[in-house]
Design a protein around this nucleic acid. Structure first.
Lengths: 164, 164
DNA sequence: ATCGTGTTTGTTATAATATAATGTCTTTGG
DNA sequence: CCAAAGACATTATATTATAACAAACACGAT
């Protein structure tokens, strides 16, 4: 079984976040080229906005930013771009927040598990195949064929834990 | 470690569903009495509607039913009742569907994991402490103190699997 | 019993999230 | 270059959820 990995660690502290963004955009560019998907200016910008912090971004916040860019933008503008990014495996949707985060392991298909800090909203993405498989197995025992998993854990990240 | 349990099995086939409802209402009644919570007529009716099928119910569908009852009802009517039932541990919210299902193990605190059929929408609730604990443990290794978990698996239930 | 207090419900309004439908423009492959 | 498909713009509307305040009700203390 593949080993557990931390796909996106908590990054609440200061770090060179421009590098995170640049890396994500470069990976996206390359992933899209490989799959013959069009990584348009709009999609690139939306992905950049999703990655603008290590916290989930809401669709309407992204919309506001696009408008601030001076771009003609309405809800469908954002939702279409997000759909594309979701389908391309470049972002994940956090169901319990109606919000979106950048995917930490684009290219390699995986089922992400998310840790979400109640306090600072920081999100970490991990990939624990043992859990994925255990769930799939448990489901199978009930005759259920699992195809997608939504796993979102809320709590306090290490920094907020200390300060709480 | 407590053993894995099926709290609510798939019940797509025919069964005496009135018994499911009656049982759920009786358990709710008793749980509320124990905790000195008011199980009002409205709350009882909303719980009954949540349990009306083994599929997730949406807030506005519940609202429609309340109106059909002839009751004065508006969105807050439903959301307040649902909040109460959620807090009392009598229903669960399915985040990925914005919908609600009856809790299969009220009284005993637990973290439910949900299996949701894409085809017929049937939902089963299981309680697999091994998974809950593995996730809590993985989180802990990142300094994250988990307090709630959202686990929702989509796929095909046994019946839909056969007919698909 | 009844008064005061906190809880529950009613009511109106509005916020937040998401999609439908249609037309135009752009890209791409032939 | 042209045709077809894909991407984007635009308008309207559907869906989900909460804020704010008033009225009704339930319960304990007297």
């Amino acid at each position: 079984m593949p080993k557990k990995r931390v796909l996106v660690p908590f990054k609440t502290g200061s770090h060179d976040h421009d590098r995170c963004i640049d890396l994500a955009l470069a990976e996206a560019e390359s992933a899209c080229r490989k799959q013959h998907l069009r990584f348009t200016e709009l999609r690139r910008r939306v992905l950049e906005l999703v990655w603008s912090r290590h916290i989930p971004m809401k669709a309407y916040d992204i919309l506001d930013e696009l408008c601030r860019d001076g771009r003609a933008a309405a809800p469908p503008t954002v939702y279409r771009a997000l759909d594309f990014l979701l389908t391309a495996g470049l972002v994940h949707r956090i169901e319990s927040l109606n919000a979106y985060v950048g995917c930490g392991g684009p290219g390699k298909p995986h089922i992400g598990q998310f840790l979400i800090c109640r306090q600072c909203n920081a999100v970490a993405e991990i990939d624990a195949p043992a859990i994925t498989q255990a769930l799939t197995q448990d489901a199978k025992r009930l005759g259920f064929r699992a195809d997608t998993q939504t796993i979102e854990i809320k709590g306090l990240c290490s920094e907020c834990n200390v300060s709480a």
